[in-house]
Simulated assay, not measured.
Amino acid sequence: MGRPAQRVLVAGGAIGRFGRFVDQPLTAIATPVVRDALATVGLTTKDIEAAFVGNAFGGALAGQESILAQVLLAPAGLARIPMRTVKNACSSGSDAVHLAWSAIAYGQYDCVLVLGAEKLTHGDKARSFAALASATDHPPQSGGRSVFMDVNAERANTYMARYGATPMHFAKVAVKNRAHAGLNERAAERAPLTVEGVLADKVVIAPLTRAMCGGMVDGAACVILVSEDFARRRGLTGSVVAASSVVSGVPEGDAEGNATHRAAQAAYESAGIAPSDVSIAEVHDPSAPQELFDIEDLMLCPRGGAIALVDEGATSLGGRIPVNVSGGLTSRGHPVGATGVAQILEIHEQLAGRAGAAQVAGAKVGLAQMAGGLLGRDSAFATVHLLTV
């Protein structure tokens, strides 16, 4: 694909509160967020030319497989325009952002809305675990936990053996992200943690304790992307999507690196940005150890170097490279289809200097990364977005 015809800006949007809303239908979770996004940016439904909706499990858990985009957007007053539902496991929302970016960058539209929404909680938790299992080709090992925790535990044990990490390092990540979530009024889990408490919590599968793992939550986020010309005409400002990179996984593994690593390489090359230029990152951390793996796959430090970053506090707010200042998946929460969209907005607010107590001083380049599903030894799909001021 050739160079984009025009620059794409994040005009703004809205993130709803993430949490467990067992008695609320998905429309009730999503509709207010769409309305808030339009109001925040100062646009109306008439300005939106197309919409993409990221959702992973609407068919399995909400009973709507085929026309979810239309069902979720109609109550907010959106109709007639092209709408598409995007499913790519944990990358559903971020892939929807990519498709919206591409449609604008290559001249198809000037103003596109992206909604990420998920209702993961269910009265029967087994239904939720079964839905999660559909995002992988790995057979579940236990009906009482997500298959992804089995894979995360295996990766954590391998990492400890190879680089000398200990469960205490993973506990430090969990504590750090919970402290970040304490500054985020939309986060699902905000109560402070201690390293001792994390290590003493119930073991899910060694070395993972419950406090190291993200729980099942619901939520929605909505972002509006516009062309630079549209922004100029309407007097809008926003962060620039400097790169939007997506790749699929390689089941047997790839000598060039896993899906996240390859997506990051493509993003850096496309934007002309080096890993050392990144001011802040939001990464896909369904468990605390995964944050370390992501940091290294994104080349924010050498292999094994994430351990030192954690010990030094470099990934905490106020550190050299703050990671998951929103609280990340383990504390802010991971309503699957919404997470990738929320990451974009978190970075956008940071670059605009509007993050309040969680503001990263001098943030100029932000990175958002998601990895969806499992395919053999790799993620099934990965996305990396780079935003600049």
Rank of each mutant, 00 (worst) to 15 (best):
P4H: 03
A5Y: 10
R7W: 00
G12C: 04
G19W: 09
R20G: 00
F21R: 02
T27W: 05
L38K: 05
L38P: 07
T44D: 10
Q64K: 13
I67H: 13
L72K: 08
L72R: 02
A76M: 04
L78G: 00
P82I: 11
N88C: 04
L99W: 05
A100G: 15
D110I: 03
A117R: 14
L120M: 15
F129R: 07
A133E: 10
S134A: 04
A135I: 08
D137I: 15
P139N: 12
V147H: 12
M149W: 13
K172H: 00
A181K: 06
N184T: 05
G197V: 00
I205P: 01
T209H: 09
R210Q: 13
M216N: 14
D218M: 01
L225P: 00
T237S: 11
V240D: 01
V241C: 13
S244L: 02
T260Q: 10
A267C: 00
A267V: 10
G272P: 03
P275I: 06
V283Q: 11
H284N: 12
S287Y: 01
S287V: 05
L298S: 05
M299C: 09
L300S: 02
C301H: 04
P302L: 05
I307R: 13
D311W: 08
A314W: 07
S316A: 15
L317A: 06
G318M: 10
G318C: 03
G327Y: 11
G327N: 06
V336D: 09
A338W: 08
I344H: 03
H348T: 00
R354C: 10
A357K: 15
A358F: 12
G376F: 15
